[in-house]
Write a protein that binds this DNA or RNA. Structure first.
Lengths: 335, 335
DNA sequence: TCTGGTTTCGATAACGTTCTCGCTACTATT
DNA sequence: AATAGTAGCGAGAACGTTATCGAAACCAGA
């Protein structure tokens, strides 16, 4: 009825040797003769032996598993980050457990709290835009659980973080708009609690100031294209219309382009639009969307690498890694 | 140095009772008094106790983990399926381990073979389009590992499967094109090895036959928009040009629309295009893409549900579930 | 006061590994 | 020929939990 797997004991019994020898033969060749080792390995293959990770994990505390906690995966950025994480983890023989918070602080707390500390070696997290209280993460840090944040990082917790250079990216975007001759620039920002939002906002503001321009509006809202539509319509119903939009991400930029198109306003020629992410859809939408490309895949790999370093050496110093972004010019910022 | 977690023993010692009592108090109230139970629970909370899943998994063979093996997650369909899986799993207190094969049969085999049979309770898989040899899955079935396939399913292995109704969806797509007045219809199909490809192709062919029309071309290739561009250009350089395209998925349809637009051919008016998936980008592209919507989220939930049923009752009969699709009419099929 | 039945708890053996000893047998050294 | 050293292996404990069995404590009925 319940499936019975071959264990190390079965091999020992079949070969008439002790379990200790089998165990040794299984991994390092140290302290076992070449012939017994071969005998054991052959028997193991024949009997279709697979190690029981519960048992090994119990004795040497250390499962080869890492948990990834992320708001969602149904968008280009997050799914690409996960791909990077997954690939690096697999290369290093670590396995990935996936937890989706759906951008709910409640679920995030629940998932983190219920996470068995003994079932993973470390944690890779990207916080909710709701999260204000970080005590569930702080508990983990206190318990010496290796923890690395990426993309959306809390400022109060001192752990390693891996992010893209949001500030410089925002500067590049704003510089580009100005260079293209736009001067009445507004910013559609993200949720105010996120440091990513603040960085991009600051880059935008500083660049305006550098050119002696003033902001034509900043609206904070979510990351969806629907948010973009709403925000742009608010801006265009105000007294001072902008002639360019810097959106905190591409999806919101799509909403802007769609809305402008519906209103018969020529994107690029009349109103410039630039996003952030380099979502593949930004090439497909018409006019195509200029954007700041984020190194999503690299962020995934790098954060996983840092985490595994922390797992393997508890003395590994805390890292703050910022990966460069790149300006991609398309139609939406062409006069 | 290495983090030391509070165990059931620590609680027992602190309270001066036996580990057995603590263990009992932790789960069902059976055989323990209400007061000791409360004592234990309070102490556990105070001492920040977390159960060690390795230990429980060892004694009652059964980790509460399922593995999901999937070609990629950087597209709408797969990421949505995963979201459904994840949500249902979490509701049922199961944890999800994610494995990406990157559509490589080699990696798929490697991942499945190295998967410790004892570290997961069951497996949810979507095969590579390369996979021709299924012995790595068959080995799992022989070892009585619960296994459910979704979306892309091998025909040779007798396990539960959860798919969308590809055949009927393809019929609906073709019927719609015909109803809109198109008659020279071609099909951009998927990789020939996949049953999903065959089902959609068959639905297309059967519907043409029903209306006494003949096919204006079938091309098999991959799922990317680049594949779509290449295929449509081949079709339009042949003698008999089609006036409508049924694409096996939306991404390929995007390539078709982009190419037609570049050639100055009016999509909809001159050439109708319909896809399959209902990727969010199909609303964003211009003209917007008509499509057959797949219940991706539901497929995720349902396949996870079936898997957990199999895990909990080994006598649970093999299921073949097919979820309905829906026609979504947009601009790309309007004259 | 004795019997029989509950209720509540403790000892102890598992689960499948790894790890620490220690023992044997063989080889090398003097 | 006696001793020291080493290679190869086995016995047993340990990891944290659950399960089985039985023991104590209590209560009711006679």
């Amino acid at each position: 009825m319940t499936r019975r797997l071959t264990t190390i004991k079965d091999i020992a019994k079949a070969l008439g040797i002790s379990v200790a020898t089998v165990s040794r033969a299984m991994r390092d060749t140290y302290d076992v003769s070449a012939e017994t080792r071969k005998l054991v390995l052959d028997a193991a293959a024949k009997m279709n032996y697979r190690p029981n990770f519960n048992a090994t994990g119990l004795v040497k505390s250390g499962t080869h598993k890492i948990a990834v906690i992320i708001p969602a995966i149904t968008n280009y950025y997050f799914s690409t980050v996960i791909t990077g994480i997954q690939e690096y983890a697999l290369e290093q023989n670590y396995q990935v457990m996936l937890y989706l918070t759906n951008d709910s602080a409640y679920w995030e707390t629940k998932v983190v709290r219920e996470l068995s500390l003994s079932s993973v070696d470390g944690l890779l997290a990207c916080i909710t835009y709701e999260t204000a209280d970080f005590s569930h993460f702080e508990e983990l840090v206190e318990a010496d659980m290796p923890l690395v944040f990426f993309d959306r990082v809390p400022e109060s917790i001192k752990t390693s973080v891996v992010v893209q250079d949001d500030y410089t990216g925002a500067c590049m975007a704003t510089e580009h708009l100005i260079a293209q001759g736009y001067s009445k620039i507004a910013h559609l920002a993200g949720p105010p609690g996120l440091n990513l939002t603040q960085q991009r906002l600051q880059g935008y503001l500083d660049t305006l100031k550098k050119h002696n321009l003033e902001s034509y509006g900043v609206i904070h809202s979510g990351f969806s294209d629907e948010n973009g539509r709403q925000d742009i319509s608010i801006l265009f119903h105000s007294a001072s219309r902008p002639d360019a939009i810097f959106s905190v991400n591409d999806r919101k930029g799509f909403g802007v382009i769609l809305w402008l198109r519906e209103q018969g306003i020529k994107v690029g020629e009349e109103v410039g639009v630039i996003g952030f992410t380099n979502d593949p859809t930004s090439k497909i939408i018409s006019p195509s969307l200029s954007t700041i490309a984020e190194p999503a895949y690299e962020i995934g790999r790098k954060s996983c690498e840092v985490l595994i370093r922390h797992i393997q050496k508890q003395s590994y110093p805390t890292q703050e890694i910022s990966l460069p972004t790149e300006l991609i010019v398309r139609e939406s910022t062409q006069r």
